[in-house]
Amino acid sequence: MSTATLKEDTKQKPLGGRFIGATANYIDERTSLSGFVKELGRKIFPDHWSFMLGEIALWAFVAVFLSGTFLTFFFQASMAPTHYVGAYAPLRGVEMTAAFESALRISWDIRGGLLVRQIHHWAALVFIAGIGIHMLRVFFTGAFRKPRELNWVIGFVLFILALAEGFTGYSLPDDLLSGNGLRIIDGMIKGLPLIGTWTSFLIFGGEFPGDDIVGRLYTMHILLLPLLVIGMIVLHLMLMVINKHTQFRSRTHQRQRRGLPDDAGLHVEDGRLLLHCVRRDRPDRLVLPDPAVLGLRPLRPVTHLGRYAA
């Protein structure tokens, strides 16, 4: 090692010891990452709970994504007829589609399967509810105005995509609810002027219900729609960083934003949101979770609903 390098090392005195310093140096020399950290590392985050609503939606999406990935390891997106032979006695030997059979298998025969299905369903509900409340906050505080109109539109597209994810997911287990939900969509498509009949025919691969729809919706549900959602979230967050958060009206704060630095993405503020709820609301006003939260009662009991039988 040359004297010049030694000199540099002693001069820099990296934070957090030799290893972290060396790692940061390795990365920065190859990515210029220090510039991003300088700009974003102490990015100011407003100290008001309503700015966390969008983040609730974001983290709900992360939960949906992780639990959904687990489910894909076991779900069979096929409408081929098969017979269930798993643990749930009342449906053993009954003819059903492979999709419903695998939904049953996930619920009854896979370790923690029902729990993950329930997490997926609940997180999806929180995702959509979070988007809805976040949109209300943005709307009623006027945060959608210039220069944030585009981000409002992107957010609205995200809301529609989330609903599309919800619908396609609802249709996958091929239980009674799936079948009736699809039948309603089929009826709505058939009602389209001029193109309705053929559109329905093309989507379902022939007459309702056909053998194709679950597989096709699965591609939408786990590939196309999530790609669009992730792309839109990236755009949404980029525009938020560019335009910065809004600020509640005040005489002195017109040209400033106040808040606490978010410390390189360590969002302890998320925890503070929970604290706010507990501190400000009387305990008796807290809504108790549905027993389904604990897995004591399933949210979508495919077992009790049974397969779709027209």
């Binding site: 100011i44 934003r257 106040r258 808040g259 606490l260 410390d263 302890v268 998320d270 503070r272 929970l274």
Partner: peptide, 16 residues
Amino acid sequence: AIHWSKALMSDKEYIE
């Protein structure tokens, strides 16, 4: 995380 933020972190407001 909440306890950390309440007990250890400064509650100072920053202006940007």
